[in-house]
């Protein structure tokens, strides 16, 4: 890569010893950062230097480092996953920053995402929302033939777009209300658009939204910050679809023990 150079930056990083303790920003001067390094590689460098001095390294979440797992989770200069659109933190490179820049790095801040240590937060709230209804029940056994169930092309595309969600939590981190509705909307849309998702469609949206509220996420005020921060470009349209499904299910779901109608 041509144009590679070393820059000197200043980091302000959130340090927090553990859950429930008080955290705060700590400044670090970081000289000699290659603009070809990724943001996480830059933090690796910082941690190596900290460890050489015998200091505690900064705890960060990361896994695949190729933008598909959803593990990395940093709010960089006030934007989840940093300044590049449709890019996870691991795919963000230091060439997006300039010589002498001060970069503030904070964890996802939400009651439902408690900090475990430094920049690592507990995102199992999203797992519990999925467990509440974000699945399709199928019998085990022989796999069904491909194309045995017709799926309209447009629905397949829309479901695939929604399924691109990696559950990283950037939507709730970006939302001024710490609302998780883009995530829940993506999951509800993904399954609700496909024929396999129909049997549990009403139960799913009711239970997932109920769990979302119970976890302590805020409500959507249609600001669009989640959409702008999403590394997988999930659209606000999924929230409208979730609202439509939720209100529809609330209104039309038959109460338990209601007359089931005729039939011999």
């Amino acid at each position: 890569m041509s144009g590679s150079k070393d820059i000197n930056i200043k980091l302000r990083i959130w340090r927090q010893k553990g859950p429930g303790t008080k955290g705060g920003l700590v400044s670090y001067d970081v000289p000699g950062v290659s603009t070809d390094s990724s943001f996480l590689e830059m933090l690796d460098l910082v941690n190596e230097r900290l460890m050489e001095k015998g200091d505690e390294p900064i705890a960060i979440d990361h896994d695949c480092r190729e933008g598909i797992c959803g593990a990395c989770s940093l709010v960089i200069n006030g934007v989840p996953h940093g300044p590049r659109a449709a890019t996870t933190t691991c795919q963000l490179h230091m060439r997006s920053f300039h010589e002498g820049q001060t970069i503030t790095v904070e964890p996802w801040m939400a009651k439902a995402f408690p900090v475990i240590k430094d920049l690592i937060v507990d995102r199992s709230a999203y797992d519990r929302i999925i467990a509440a209804g974000g699945f399709v029940s199928v019998n085990t056994g022989v796999g069904v033939d491909a194309n045995a169930i017709p799926v309209p092309k447009e629905n397949a595309e829309l479901a695939m777009d929604a399924a691109a969600c990696i559950g990283c939590g950037a939507c709730a981190a970006a939302c001024p209300n710490a609302s998780a509705m883009l995530f829940v909307g993506a999951k509800v849309s993904h399954l609700g658009l496909l024929p396999q998702g129909q049997p549990e469609r009403q139960e799913r949206v009711l239970k997932m939204v109920e769990q979302m509220d119970a976890e302590g996420f805020g409500g959507c005020t249609n600001m669009g910050e989640c959409e702008a921060a999403c590394p997988k470009e999930i659209k606000l349209e999924v929230i409208a679809r979730m609202n439509r499904d939720y209100i529809g299910a609330k209104v039309t779901k038959r109460p338990k023990g209601a007359d089931k109608g005729g039939g011999a």
């Binding site: 904070e106 209300n177 600001m223 910050e225």
Partner: peptide, 14 residues
């Protein structure tokens, strides 16, 4: 839903 706020929050869309 957000008891501890950000030191630095940039709005992109709102």
């Amino acid at each position: 839903a957000r008891p501890v706020g950000y030191a630095h929050q940039s709005f992109q869309a709102a």
